[in-house]
Design a protein around this nucleic acid. Structure first.
Length: 475
RNA sequence: CCGGGUGUGGCGCAGCUGGUAGCGCGCUUGACUGGGGGUCAAGAGGCCGCAAGUUCAAGUCUUGUCACUCGGACCA
């Protein structure tokens, strides 16, 4: 088995165990852009007088991705490599992700805390595997002002060590367990190859760190949080995922087992979208965390950690987007409905648009009315680029007939709908759009999933088709 | 870390064998428009990455340097 795994590692394939007896092999390289197509697109953009053309998805997937993150105004590059500016629209997506996940965590009994961003070198080094895994990619702080520090400190790449130090202070008895903490923060990993959202040097995430009385309880927490992530991905982001366990070579540094949700991107590659780790009592021993058990013996607690990062935004883009730009699942879309007034200088149009906006807002829908004097065509293209799920057009004709035009972002379908019950119409359409996104992603995954009976068969198949492979030969 | 490429208005680029900087988009103002990226007119905006050198003269040539980028290596 070890030999086979190293073979896959060389090919940049991720290998992980499906939760049943299958393993799944999926290409997991981080996308890199290529130069070739750029000039053609720029030329095309000139010829067609388009404002911002993006590279077609089937021509160069990586370039398509970069064009979207820039043109949909999610990020701006900064002067620090691998560190991006999250612009209001991009950050708003993250805020929605935060709001939903945070609610789910609290429902499960977790509490939020905040740890320092600096870790003294000696603290990082307490757990051997952990430091070996992370030391090559941490950023170091060596000076305070002009004075060299007595001990250098790293900017947290993850906070296990800080949580452990703290837990050692506050856990005395089995009565103190479990401890279910989570924090929202940014971490720094000095990556050499960076891509917005997918692999950056600083990124935002949440990291949950829990301590338990028994290993059974900690294992249960690990799978409970993996299930939480699955539910979030599938029910809110409309992104089907495969739950599984990473091989030893890919598991978290210091963990006993790493579980993951893997989503298939539009091009058939896998993206690790959330992880949940079981640590056993390895860290507890290294950090000397003990508690008095029910039988009055001194024991080490069992630990888990789990995290989802802004990479999930990259997953949303690559799962649902198309040649016209981003498509956002309604649950996390900063704007769920955009209203574009037509012939807005004519009497009554802007007033009708404003009234429509108010009704939708009162119905709990995130709505924007774009009354700038850009042309309607420009607005259509702009909000398609930004992935707004539903567009409502309202002009003199509609006002007269008591209707408006509803356009769906996922399939472009246009429909004249009555203003009278617009709230329920929009709610229904948002729901249907969400379901359609999930179905489409599921179909894509099904079309790119294969089964191999033997190892030899698998070797040949992975060269031909990018996708997920199930094999039965590994028990 | 190794190799290739690129640095010129906000963005994308042109600028040949040296002669003192131009195009498209965007931006500003106004008018006409408006149901798929509108039209016209008038404007604003540049130490040509940085430093040194060659020259009467450097965006252009030479050297150095910095940054970015692509590929490789490295990387949960």
């Amino acid at each position: 088995m070890a030999k086979k795994l190293s073979f896959f590692a060389r090919l940049s394939y991720g290998v992980f165990f499906f939760l049943s007896k299958y393993i799944i092999i999926a290409k997991t390289t981080i996308y890199k852009a290529e130069n070739a197509a750029r000039k053609d697109v720029e030329q095309m953009s000139k010829d067609k007088k388009l404002v911002e053309a993006i590279t077609p998805i089937n021509e160069d997937f990586a370039r398509w991705y970069t064009d979207i993150v820039k043109n949909a105004e999610l990020i701006d590059y900064s002067s620090v490599k691998g560190c991006v500016v999250l612009r209001p629209y991009g950050y708003a997506i993250w805020e929605n992700v935060q709001r939903i996940l945070d609610g789910m965590f609290k429902e499960l009994g977790h509490e939020n805390v905040y740890m320092p961003m600096f870790i003294p070198e000696s603290l990082l080094q307490k757990e051997k595997d952990h430091v070996e895994g992370f030391a090559p990619e941490v950023a170091w702080v060596t000076h305070g002002g002009t004075e060299p520090l007595a001990e250098r400190m790293c900017v947290r790449p993850t906070s296990e060590t800080l949580f452990c130090e703290h837990y050692a202070h506050i856990i005395q008895s089995y009565r103190d367990l479990p401890k279910l903490y989570n924090q929202w923060c940014s971490v720094v990993r000095w990556e050499k190859t960076t891509r917005p959202f997918l692999r950056s040097r600083e990124f935002l995430w949440q990291e949950g760190h829990t301590m338990h009385e028994t290993s059974e309880e900690a294992v249960a927490e690990t799978t409970r949080m993996l299930e939480c992530y699955r539910e979030f991905a599938e029910d809110y982001l409309m992104m089907p995922v495969v739950c599984g366990r990473k091989t030893d070579s890919e598991k978290f540094a210091g963990a006993e087992a790493t579980y993951t949700i893997e989503a298939m991107m539009h091009d058939g590659k896998a993206l690790q979208s959330g992880t949940s780790h079981y640590f056993g009592d390895g860290f507890a021993k290294a950090f000397d965390i003990t508690f008095t058990a029910r039988d009055n013996t001194l024991q080490h607690p069992f630990q888990t950690s789990w995290g989802v990062s802004t990479r999930i935004i990259g997953a949303i883009i690559m799962t649902h987007g198309d040649d016209n730009g981003l498509i956002l699942p309604p649950a996390v879309a900063p704007i769920q409905v955009v209203i574009t007034p037509v012939a807005q200088h004519k009497e009554g149009v802007l007033e009708a648009a404003a009234a429509l906006k108010k009704r939708l807002k009162d119905a709990g829908i995130r709505v924007l009315c774009d009354d700038t004097d850009n042309s309607p065509g420009w607005k259509f293209a702009q909000y398609e680029m930004k992935g707004v799920p539903i567009r409502l057009e309202i002009g003199p004709r509609d006002i007269e007939s008591g209707n408006c035009v509803l356009v769906r972002r996922d399939n472009g379908a246009k429909e004249v709908v009555a203003l009278a019950d617009i709230e329920s119409t929009v709610h229904t359409q948002l729901d249907e759009l969400a379901k359609a996104l999930f179905e489409r992603a599921l179909n894509n995954r099904a079309q790119r999933s294969f089964t191999c009976a033997t190892y030899g068969e698998l070797e040949k198949a992975v060269e031909k088709d990018v996708g997920f492979y199930k094999t039965a030969w590994c028990g």
